[in-house]
Design a binder for these strands. Structure first.
Lengths: 163, 163
DNA sequence: GCTTGAGCTCAAGTTAGGTTTAGAAATTAC
DNA sequence: GTAATTTCTAAACCTAACTTGAGCTCAAGC
């Protein structure tokens, strides 16, 4: 048992992360290790759990700033207890549900498009700039905003609107 | 009605995309416009639909190469028909379902963690490198791989395994 | 006590998905 | 016919999330 605290290499080994990634997370404020006399980072055991949470949250598509905000709900001074982690997990679960629900909404709208086959403004519920843009971060603006002529089939049958 | 074909500016206006983005998509092989005598890009009406599909697929988290592969199922020579788009949409729906199912699996595993509150190897189903890594693209390797001592609570009650 | 692996900092490189800029040429509008 | 827009290419720049490399220090093992 060499020094008190865990080395960055040990954390890397335990989490499967690269040492450089852990250092990067520190620069982003997701961890705050202390330093030993020689200037090396020393971590606490609870930091393995923090890193695990980061990994899982990333899988759900959360950005590092978002994850940092989540982790900020943990007590800063004392070591987080089981109850602390439970609270964070419960809140996290709420975010997950919301994210999944958004995807499901988009999927259900796509179903309408499959039904009509044309993905056009009239029948495609995916045309809804607000909802669609809200679904996954900042996306572009309009979706499927076009008229029947844009389908490209039977162009003679339908009159283009303004062009 | 100026020239035959649609200008890049018109497509940008119709889809809400930036002109630069449409050019970028061309470099990535998602569109293949032709050129007029002066060297300017000319698009077909069906390209509005392609761009709409790109926008929607991106909202679901698909990468441009993935979207390109999806679009490659459309006929290259003739203008895609309603049936062509229907086929693509149906396949796309399958991909969506799979993606949503993966997220739900992760979420359900997290439920176990909330229950146990410790996010530890023993009781946390999120510890499963293969499944977890498969969920959303290439992620890091281990997840929640640690022991009860890592929780940081009651450290005296449990014996650390190897360190 | 010396060697060697582990760690340090800082800068630059990487990938994805674009945007911005610059200078020139084409197109449109009047 | 001229002026204003649009478009062109190429290269540079951007953010996120890291990795890599250089040059140097620290710590652990024998």
């Amino acid at each position: 048992m060499p020094q008190p605290g865990l080395s960055i290499g040990y954390l890397a080994e335990r989490t499967g992360l690269a040492v450089s990634a852990i250092r990067y997370y520190e620069t982003q404020g997701l961890l705050t290790p202390w330093r030993n006399a020689g200037g090396q980072r020393r971590f606490e055991r609870a930091d393995i759990r923090r890193l695990s949470f980061i990994l899982i949250a990333q899988k759900f598509g959360f950005t590092l700033p978002e994850i940092r905000d989540q982790l900020a709900t943990l007590p800063g001074k004392r070591t987080p207890t089981k109850a602390d982690w439970q609270k964070l997990s419960t809140a996290f679960r709420g975010h997950l549900d919301a994210r999944i629900a958004q995807l499901e909404t988009l999927r259900d709208r796509l179903d309408g498009c499959i039904g009509c086959g044309c993905l056009s403004l009239d029948s495609c519920k995916l045309y809804n700039p607000q909802d669609a843009a809200a679904a996954l971060g900042q996306g572009p603006r309009y979706v499927m905003g076009d008229d029947a002529a844009d389908l490209g089939i039977d162009p003679g049958e339908l009159r283009a609107d303004s062009d």
